[in-house]
Nucleic acid binder design. Structure first.
Lengths: 143, 143
DNA sequence: CTCCAATAGTCTAAAATGGATACTAGGTTT
DNA sequence: AAACCTAGTATCCATTTTAGACTATTGGAG
């Protein structure tokens, strides 16, 4: 599937998504292991986006990332970075100094994610107030 | 923040993301409660995207969604739909028939998400092979 | 010389989250 | 009368995430 959705009308986007999803279901017989889900699951795991955004600015060392994203545990930071490295999004470079120094940077593949990510962030930012208003209305109605 | 990233060069996207993130950190003093994260956390919760895609095609009843997304539990389906409803992305309409019938459909806000979502899906689809290759290489090296 | 800090993690136990299964209500089918 | 349909709840158990202590190594403070 190539990017058809360049004129950005919602109808085009819907058709693209629906057609792509239907095609895939027909190819694979409703197999739960969808390649898109496989990728998007990672996007959504709470820390990945934040780390990618942090590394978008410049390469960071382990502790630098930890300072930039203060509420992540070191364990999850390690895990998320390993996932990103495994997926070819992040390059891990060890400098054999003492104390040890490890630098993480986005690969070209990782940088290519910034484009769709910027769209999504812009959407989230642009619709945040609407969403908050909807939440208030919902909680008032059924709270 | 408005969408500056219309020419879609990676440099523009990076600058947009980095500038937006830095601005927000300066405004809020590194508060962990980021509005963008607040929205993106939902996107990533494994079922939301799939349900939005399903509803993109047409309104669905509860059991129809369950058939379209077979490996979700009814509990998680209910929960995810409630979240989407609360955020103003989905409209829930009850028909007082017997047995009961409940229809879920995307709101205008929900449909507006399809545009950035299509971008992300296109990226995932277009880079899936690269990611799989990176995983194989990684597992071969450190397995 | 000893103590402390910093690095990049790992390990373990507790807390939060998610999933499987059984259950609800009311009417329809067998 | 028994089983089944709908759209969910309730409950318990498994997985995931977190918090916090712990590792090795070396430079600097006292």
């Amino acid at each position: 599937m190539t990017r058809l959705c360049t004129d950005n009308s919602i109808e085009m986007c819907r058709d693209e998504i629906v057609a792509g999803y239907r095609q895939w279901r027909e190819r694979t017989g409703n197999n739960p292991h969808c390649p898109v889900r496989d990728v998007l699951d990672r996007m959504g795991d709470k820390w990945t986006t934040l780390i990618v955004i942090t590394l978008a600015e410049r390469p960071h060392r382990f502790s630098e990332i930890h300072r930039a994203v203060p509420d992540i545990s070191r364990r999850m930071l390690t895990q998320t970075l390993r996932h990103l490295e495994r997926d070819g999004m992040v390059l891990r470079q060890v400098f054999p100094t003492m104390p040890p120094s490890v630098e993480y940077r986005l690969t070209h593949l990782g940088e290519s994610l910034l484009r769709p990510l910027a769209e999504l962030i812009a959407w989230a930012d642009g619709n945040h107030e609407r969403i908050m208003a909807a939440r208030v209305a919902y909680d008032a109605g059924s709270g």
